[in-house]
Design a protein around this nucleic acid. Structure first.
Lengths: 122, 122
DNA sequence: ATTATTGTATCATTAAACTAATACAATTAA
DNA sequence: TTAATTGTATTAGTTTAATGATACAATAAT
């Protein structure tokens, strides 16, 4: 799994979303330990401080919890994980529809265009 | 029409997109003169240099052209304007579908969710 | 008991984006 | 001809993100 970081948005924000995605998709499982700050930083090719910032922000949402010396755990609350996934999806949909309508596309046109769109990376 | 600028992306990039949108939607019409750098900067509440940067970048795409002292004009090439609109729409669709599939949604699910979505600001 | 690992905190530095103040050049309007 | 308007350039300062280096505290492993 690649981190795929680019420079047009803050690195720590991109990292935050990547880890969130790994939890949502089950790559990091509920209740499981996630790699240490230093290991994750090495893996992503960023400074440990940057990784620490991303993880600290993730903690506010409750998806992960830090235990001072034994590392970080993913929450065991599967309902919260599911809710997070749905919330992100709803935001994506809202943003997408708003932008398309700003460009002058009606809902029906948008759906037609989507039906013509290839599946991509499934 | 509001500019609606926020701080989580470069101001000049948001301005660029807003002006592009005004051309695409016909608020700034083909061949028409657009307000001066200083006027636009005042309207958007940003420094003239920031507005200048956004306009200079927009110029690379050919949507607007600067005439040293008589101001800036929107291109008269309506095909180019239409093409720009379609290109942006294609990018939006691609990004949206990719993100949703990363979250684990199949194409059919995405379309179902969209059908349940309200029209919004039409 | 000692060592290693973990999260966390601190301080300095660099780079980029944005702001600010001003000036210049060219053409239009008076 | 003169004044105003326009795009553009220059230089400096501020803020934020990211890096780098280092240190501390607490617990797990030995």
């Amino acid at each position: 799994m690649a981190w795929n970081l680019n420079s047009d948005r803050p690195i720590y924000a991109q990292i935050l979303e990547e880890i969130q995605l790994r939890i949502i998709t089950g790559l990091y499982k509920p209740g499981a330990k996630i790699p240490s700050v230093r290991d994750l930083a090495t893996e992503a090719g960023v400074n440990p401080n940057t990784m620490q910032k991303a993880l600290a922000e993730l903690e506010r949402s409750g998806l992960v919890m830090a235990q001072r010396t034994s590392g970080r755990m993913v929450t065991e609350d599967m309902a919260m994980i599911r809710e997070t996934r749905n919330k992100i999806a709803r935001e994506q949909i809202r943003d997408f529809v708003d932008k398309m309508q700003k460009l002058g596309f009606q809902k029906e046109e948008i759906i037609k265009l989507l039906e013509q769109t290839e599946g991509g990376t499934v």
